[in-house]
Simulated scan of single mutants.
Amino acid sequence: MAPFLIERRSRLPVDEAWRRLTHWERHAVSVPLTRITVTTPPPSGTGTRFTARTRLGPLALDDPMEVVRWQPPTGHGPGRCRLEKRGRAITGWAEIEVYGHGAGSRARWTEELRIRGVPRVFDPLTAWAGRLVFGRALRRLLDG
């Protein structure tokens, strides 16, 4: 697995940061060549399933995910969400956490990513690419 961690501070209140980070279709705006389709009815919560499809010409890669933990923020604690990657090509998990931080919030994205068929020797490169792509997505979701 290629683990990585990204943290960002935001001026947004915790509830708004949580709403933006768990609005799954919005993630596609920040990830190049990707479209996200939610396959379960709203609202989001445990059991929500969606697929991120990245396409470059005739080549497409699906990354189906399921929310297995859903704990929205409360006045007493942070919001936490865990996604399990259920694909044939991409496996692993991601966790999104949103904490209060002064007048704003702090978001933490932790992920362990595995791309089947890619030798483990490339895990550092995979983690670097994950930090780059998801760091950009996190910044755009919180700033946009």
Rank of each mutant, 00 (worst) to 15 (best):
P124G: 07
R108P: 03
A107K: 01
E95M: 08
H76I: 14
E25Y: 13
A28H: 03
V67T: 03
L59K: 14
L142Q: 01
W93E: 05
T22A: 07
R120Q: 11
E25W: 08
L83H: 09
P119W: 08
A28F: 02
P64F: 03
E7W: 06
H27L: 15
K85N: 08
K85C: 03
A94P: 02
G130D: 03
P119K: 14
R139C: 04
G79V: 00
L83W: 09
H101G: 04
G104W: 01
R136F: 09
G104I: 02
I96S: 01
F4H: 05
R88C: 11
H76F: 11
E111R: 07
Q71G: 04
F122Q: 11
A2W: 00
R136T: 15
I6V: 15
W24M: 14
R136D: 08
G117K: 08
R120C: 09
G100C: 15
R80S: 10
P3I: 07
T40D: 12
P73Y: 00
F50K: 08
A89S: 15
W18E: 01
P78L: 08
W18G: 00
V121Q: 11
V29R: 13
R8I: 02
H27Y: 13
E7Q: 15
T46E: 14
R55P: 02
Y99N: 07
M1L: 15
R131E: 10
A137V: 04
G144N: 08
T48N: 01
A129F: 15
S10M: 09
R140Q: 14
E66Q: 10
